[in-house]
Write a protein that binds this DNA or RNA. Structure first.
Lengths: 239, 239
DNA sequence: GACTAGTTTAAACGTTCGTTTTAATCTTAC
DNA sequence: GTAAGATTAAAACGAACGTTTAAACTAGTC
């Protein structure tokens, strides 16, 4: 309801709204939604405490604004690339590795652009994926529904041997590995030994992730009886 | 500092401590650590508010106790199975699909056992993996360090073509897909259409995940220049 | 130079949080 | 039966939270 009137001279002292968004992006990324207080955000942005409720209405709406600012353009770019690929390949299906690129490239481009939050935002996004809060889950599913459906159809055409359900599962697994990787907790240190300087290099990270996911997506269909054998057979608990 | 003395008759009225652990397991799973109050836990467990601090010391220690109760036995079982596989295969390497089974089977066995929290706990674990709180990250990495190192060595022997660093990445991605899947947020509904009744069936889920991850683990090495071409080449943003 | 709409400020609101304290109650051993 | 110790109970602590209020400030407009 509040229209930001930019003065003609356009010499705005780094608008309050943007300073709040920037500070919130960093702090939400570092501490999660629940554990980040409005007081810490407004302190970091050097604005008054009430400014958040004035400009955004509530803490939840601020969080959604932080996500929307980066997410909308990125998802739009994903769909644009996909449609371009489809037009170029028509009437054949787009190869699945290219579809995967259409998902990854906009994320990569965002990651390497400090002016758009850089990797900070990708980490925040990864965390949002795993957050229990219902309003976050609701927000993400509505934000993503259209884009995911679009890509699912593309993969279905490209991988006709996969049943729709199997494809749903594999897309789910893919989003899991992606969001966990983007969240970039120091879980990697559990697995140890990053090359010095390579840490937090989101580009290299995503480039290693892509072949991993492509192989998983195109894997042969599961032999559902296998794990059962393991469970009932030679892997009994030792006692 | 508090020793629980079990009476000789051993007719304990469902010990306070266990009732707290059970209630906490469910509530932490549903709302996450920060958003779950001690008051809601003690109300659900029908015990006094002060009982948590008396028996566990603090909310954080309670959370760790909830995790340890299920995690220690499960990880021990994983290592036991792996060592059995190694003895059986020696001096050859254990095939990587079997190593993967050693990781999955104990989780599956836990998931199908309602007496040990069933899938509730696996969901909580998945959430803990993505939680920002430093004490959770510290706890998990120390808890898992030994087990992960053990499995990494096994995979390294089984997949000699993978460099140690490449293997670290892939294990990371694997843990990502696993924990995201276990967390079982309704993110799946973003991708839509679960078969009725199949939802929340952790067994089927993990059995579909295993082939996906196995294919990713054994994928051919990445061609690092590919994505670069995509970035700089034919996938420019449309303007 | 008052008027207005938009914005910022300082202060307080009511609630909830994790934890602590103090006393009462229960259990076990002699 | 009674003393000692472990457990539960009720109440309060201080701090932090998101949000609201009402006054002060800052342009642009007539």
């Amino acid at each position: 309801m509040t229209a930001t009137v930019v003065p003609i001279g356009s010499r705005v002292p780094a608008a309050t709204k943007d300073r709040i968004l920037d500070a919130a992006e960093t702090l939400f990324m570092e501490h999660g939604f629940e554990a980040t207080s409005l007081r810490s955000i407004t302190a970091a942005a050097a604005v008054n405490l009430a400014a958040v409720n004035y400009h955004f209405g509530s803490k939840e709406e601020l969080f959604q604004a932080v996500l929307t600012r980066r997410l909308d353009p990125m998802n739009q770019e994903r769909v644009d690339i996909l449609e371009r690929l489809e037009r170029a390949a028509a009437p054949e299906a787009v190869p699945s590795d290219k579809i995967l690129s259409a998902l990854f490239v906009p994320a990569l481009r965002l990651a390497r652009d400090p002016l758009r939050g850089g990797s900070n935002f990708l980490r925040l996004l990864g965390r949002a994926y795993a957050d229990p809060a219902p309003f976050i889950r609701r927000f993400l599913s509505t934000q993503y529904a259209a884009m995911i459906g679009r890509f699912k159809a593309a993969f279905a055409k490209s991988l006709p041997s996969l049943s729709p359900r199997e494809l749903s599962w594999r897309l789910h697994f893919m989003m899991g590995a992606l969001s966990y990787t983007l969240a970039g907790t120091d879980a990697l240190r559990m697995i140890e030994e990053l090359a010095p300087g390579e840490s937090s290099n989101d580009e290299l990270l995503l480039r290693r992730l892509a072949p991993f996911l492509l192989a998983g997506l195109t894997a042969p269909l599961p032999e559902l009886s296998e794990v059962n054998h393991a469970l009932d057979g030679d892997m009994r608990p030792a006692e």
